[in-house]
Simulated assay, not measured.
Amino acid sequence: MSMELKVTRYTAGDGVAVITLHRPERLNAWTGRMHTEYRWCLQQAEADPAVRVIVVTGAGRGFCAGADARALEGHIEKGGYDPGTPAELPTPGFGVRPEFDHDFAYHFGLAKPTIAAINGPAAGVGLVLACFCDIRFAAAGAKLTTAHGRLGLPAEYGLSWLLPRLIGLSAAMELLLSSRVFLAEEAEQLGLVHRVLPAGELMPAVLDYARRLARTVAPSSLRVTRRQVYADLHRDVGSSVEDAGRLLDELTRGPDFREGVAALLEKREPDFLAVTPPRTAPPAN
């Protein structure tokens, strides 16, 4: 399935795919077209064995300012919610667990970690997208908000389930109920953001972090560890221990384990990109 990218950009190299939301004149406000393209970009990254880590960011001054105002107005005219997406959508992350086969929850079924580089405002669905990523970095002073309360909407796309698990019930409830704007610095204090950086240093730092993950952490370990974490949100500790034992047996037979042990014995840093050398994928248009 090919796609002409109009409101996103996709590039890949050095083991890292970068998905950029690209409506800078609208602070990358979310539309059905953007949702469709974003899922397609994720699918490309998943299918490319050279991609080990996925970075999501926004063009210009914003990460994603939430739903496009024109689209919100359209819901009123149509008398209800219209996602604006085609009947057939790309399905990255689907098929792992039934509870992951839903909008944004599909992130939990991906085989590769996702990192949000929040370069500017992240509101509503923009904050949802950032929260469904595994790790978040943010530019100093970036404004974040759940936003839905000021629009007379419910918490969107499972944020009421996810946010309490990220920062705790009380803090999440306050942000969800108030829909207030909070800054990246407060998000870092709450544990929602891993690190805050000056705007000009954000992407270089995120890419350096992502490339280091791609190079020094086994892709097999990245894949199973994140799936363990998200599966464990739905199961008991005994099932988690049992699954860990099965995975331990599986991964010790693989080439990543051999490279990890060799690096340990040789007292060097492992290089998992050398196990399966990456190719540089051309930008998708």
Rank of each mutant, 00 (worst) to 15 (best):
E4D: 12
K6E: 00
K6R: 05
V7W: 07
V7A: 10
T8N: 03
R9M: 04
R9H: 04
Y10F: 13
G13I: 00
G15I: 10
G15Y: 08
V18C: 11
I19C: 06
H22S: 12
P24R: 09
R26A: 11
N28W: 03
A29Q: 10
T31Y: 05
H35F: 15
Q43E: 13
E46D: 04
D48C: 04
P49R: 14
V51Y: 08
T57P: 03
R61S: 05
A65I: 12
A69M: 05
E73V: 02
D82N: 14
D82M: 09
D82C: 15
P92T: 01
E99F: 07
F100T: 12
D103R: 15
D103F: 12
A105Q: 09
H107Y: 15
G109M: 14
L110T: 12
K112A: 01
P113H: 07
T114Q: 10
I118R: 02
N119C: 10
N119S: 15
A123E: 10
G124H: 02
F132I: 08
C133V: 10
I135V: 14
A138I: 00
A139K: 11
A140D: 08
G141A: 00
L144F: 03
L144K: 06
T145S: 14
L151S: 12
L151Y: 15
A155L: 09
L159I: 15
L163A: 04
P164Q: 14
L166H: 03
S179M: 05
F182R: 12
L183T: 10
A184T: 01
A184H: 03
E188S: 08
E188M: 08
L190C: 02
V193E: 02
V193P: 03
A199E: 14
V206R: 14
S221C: 04
T225E: 10
T225A: 13
R226G: 03
Q228N: 07
V229N: 10
R235A: 10
S239K: 11
E242V: 09
A244S: 11
A244D: 12
L247D: 05
L248G: 11
E250S: 07
R253K: 13
R253F: 09
F257E: 03
R258D: 00
L264R: 01
L265M: 03
K267E: 09
R268S: 00
P270W: 00
L273W: 08
L273R: 08
A284R: 11
N285L: 13
